[in-house]
Simulated scan of single mutants.
Amino acid sequence: MSSNDTVFSPDLAGIVVGETAISDVQGDSGVLNYRGIDINDMVGTPFLHAAWMVLFGEWPNAQEKSQLKAFMCRHASLTHDEIDLLEKLPKGLHPMLMLQGMVPLLCLPEESSLEIDLDAAQGLFLAAKISGLIAAHYRLAQNKSILQPVPGKLFHENFLTMFHGSSPSEEQRRMLDAAQILQMEHSYNAGTFAGRVCASTLAPIQSSVSASIGTLYGRLHGGADQAALEMAIAIGSPENAAAYVTECLANKVKIMGMGHREYRTVDPRAKILKPMAVELCRDDESKRLLATLVAVEEACQKEFSAKGKEIWANVEFYKGAVFHSLGIPTHYFTAMFAMARVYGYVAHFLEFKNDSRLIRPRARYVGPAVGSRKQSAA
């Protein structure tokens, strides 16, 4: 096959670039599974147990559960050096840029204190540190003291306590567990693929995770959760939703959180998150924002239905309402996404290193032919 006959896809749509046993996205039927377990069956399990399954393909035994809980609590605590680094950053720096910059600066353990290989232990170390960094960054921005995790508490119970300074309710902790499990892994999404490209150069795990986090930040990827709720805030009320949608479609403005690159039907994660948002959003402001999001989705469906098309909200669309009800500011939404998706990034790093090869696609040259441009006379 000549170079001119090579398959060309600028966005790699439909191009198979690897194999994975970590998760399966069946976009046409709206099905997602982790390690062969349907996402509906994963939600409701303890968060760290689901993370272990994503990483290693099996549930942790009693000893592993105990060791994992203690490990994650210990390393969610920031050292004096890590706090010093964090304090030197601009207070207004977006949390995603903070994470992308801080992750490569962390001193990774040189030995595994868990009965797993060193790369896996370092990946879990990074995941624990990310939770501590997000909470500490928020506290510093509020001119409040940084809090440390308490041994014995569940992972997200510790996180919400470190973030807000007060213990969450059992319902709040359970909701955060579910929301974070739903966004833990999603096959070869842009962030994961960026991490695999980085790993293919034999860069270390912290570089791979940092590359993934930087990619997740984009509004067409993880940043859609922040953009969707800020859109609802700007719209103001459900009564304004239809006019907003009509104007956006007339001006070809993308409505953040509507539609998904992979799913041709309802995003299975959104099917779970939407009723969760309804259950959790009880105060007046949260109810108004949720009602506005519902009205936007309904207006979009009406507009697209008139054109013989279907469109559905994706996981980012209603996730923001859940996070808002948990007291998480909008500009921290994507960092919360990174805090969950890091387990998928680490799982792909571990999988890829077993059969690593440098990812080096070809480009179709469209510039001038050799010799077609003559040097002008002096």
Rank of each mutant, 00 (worst) to 15 (best):
A13I: 09
G14W: 00
I15H: 14
T20D: 02
V25R: 02
N33I: 07
Y34S: 10
G36Q: 03
I37T: 13
H49M: 11
W52C: 10
L55H: 04
L68K: 03
K69I: 08
R74A: 15
S77R: 12
S77G: 09
S77Y: 06
H80K: 14
L89W: 00
P90T: 02
P95F: 07
L97P: 02
L105I: 09
E110F: 11
E111P: 04
S112Y: 09
E115F: 12
A121S: 14
Q122K: 11
L124V: 06
K129E: 08
A136W: 06
Y138C: 10
L147W: 05
L147K: 09
H156G: 11
E157V: 15
L160K: 05
M162C: 14
R173E: 13
D177W: 00
I181N: 04
L182V: 02
Q183P: 01
Y188M: 11
T192K: 05
G195D: 00
A199T: 00
L202A: 14
S208T: 08
S210L: 06
A211N: 01
R219K: 13
Q226C: 12
A234S: 11
E239I: 07
E239N: 10
N251R: 13
K254G: 10
M256R: 05
R264S: 15
I272F: 11
K274I: 06
E279W: 11
C281W: 00
D284A: 14
R288S: 09
V296N: 05
F304G: 01
A306G: 02
E310R: 15
F317N: 03
L326I: 08
Y332F: 13
F333A: 09
V342R: 06
A347I: 04
F349P: 01
L358R: 05
L358V: 03
P361S: 07
R362W: 12
V370A: 13
Q375S: 13
A377I: 12
